[in-house]
């Protein structure tokens, strides 16, 4: 039994972490909220004035916002689709008996540890470059014209790069879930004559549903904030073709110095992320009780 003494000590030990995070969350966030109601540009200091919801009106009716919102959804959705389908497939493959499983695992997991700026630049220059990239060489060898990825399909190219980075994470989680699957249940189904296809859809997939949900939620949190990959490949262009909300807010605040507008965009991003976070927290909270 914990004594009163240790209870007091426990509170004392938790408080630095709590206070720091509280400060990290409340101070900047309330400043962002405050700035979002101001006409505030870093290029004209001292001219700040209260303008109510005008920044939100401008941000939410700006065509750039709709482009960025659409791109954000495509980016998150596209990467999720590739990593979940690919992750389940890879996990099923890695779970089979084979020689050198450990080494294959190491190969598959590697992209996750490559920093975003490196993977984006390596893909952009050494693979997707229309003149010297490997894809261009491959296309020429097969008699096709090389494809200029970032000029004609900038968002798609970024989706491919980000999916490559996140596929290992999805695979690892699916594999972890797969390895906790009750083998006897599968054997029993096999005995009863259930086909492979049915065994997968009625036993394996339901067992993995929790892992899939976790992958969706965790990745969504990170994918909503994709930034470096866009900055070093396209700078959001051409036009707004590959700008997501994170990049739009960054550009508005640190490139155009529009603190008010950028802040309003930041708050919009916070609200969007909160919707996702709400579901994620419920899932993890449930797990905490068991």
């Amino acid at each position: 039994m914990a004594t009163d003494h240790s209870r007091v000590a426990a509170r004392f030990m938790i408080s630095p972490a709590v206070l720091l995070l509280l400060g990290w969350m409340i101070i900047p966030l309330s400043m962002t909220i405050y700035f979002s109601f101001l006409n505030y540009n870093l290029l004209s200091p001292g001219m700040e004035e209260w303008i109510g919801f005008t920044n939100y009106e401008y941000f939410l009716t700006d065509p750039a916002f709709f482009a960025a919102l659409g791109n954000t959804l495509l980016l998150v959705g596209g990467v999720l689709l590739i990593t979940i389908v690919g992750g389940i497939g890879l996990a099923l493959l890695l779970d089979q008996p084979m020689w050198g499983q450990g080494i294959v695992r190491i190969l598959v997991i590697a992209p996750f540890f490559v920093m975003p700026t490196v993977s984006a630049l390596v893909w952009k220059n050494m693979f997707m470059n229309p003149v010297n990239g490997l894809f261009a060489h491959a296309a020429k060898a097969l008699g096709f014209a090389p494809f200029d990825f970032f000029a004609h399909a900038p968002l798609f190219s970024i989706i491919m790069i980000v999916a490559w980075q996140w596929l290992p994470f999805a695979t690892l989680i699916m594999l972890t879930a797969l390895q906790s699957l009750d083998q006897e249940q599968l054997e029993a189904a096999k005995m009863d004559g259930a086909r492979k296809f049915n065994r997968f859809f009625h036993i394996t997939l339901p067992h993995m549903s929790r892992a899939i949900t976790v992958v969706i939620l965790i990745q969504t949190i990170f994918l909503l904030s994709i930034f470096a990959e866009i900055l070093v490949t396209t700078n959001g262009g051409p036009g707004y073709a590959s700008t997501n909300i994170t990049y739009l807010v960054y550009a508005q605040s640190l490139l155009q110095f529009d603190v008010g507008g950028g802040s309003a965009g930041g708050i919009v991003a916070v609200i969007l992320a909160n919707i996702v976070a709400f579901f994620l927290m419920r899932m993890i909270g449930k797990n905490l009780e068991t």
Partner: peptide, 19 residues
Amino acid sequence: ILMWMLSTKMLPPVGVLIP
């Protein structure tokens, strides 16, 4: 407290970038 700490991780960085 644990859940609340987790929620701070979900705050998008652009929400606090300017301050």
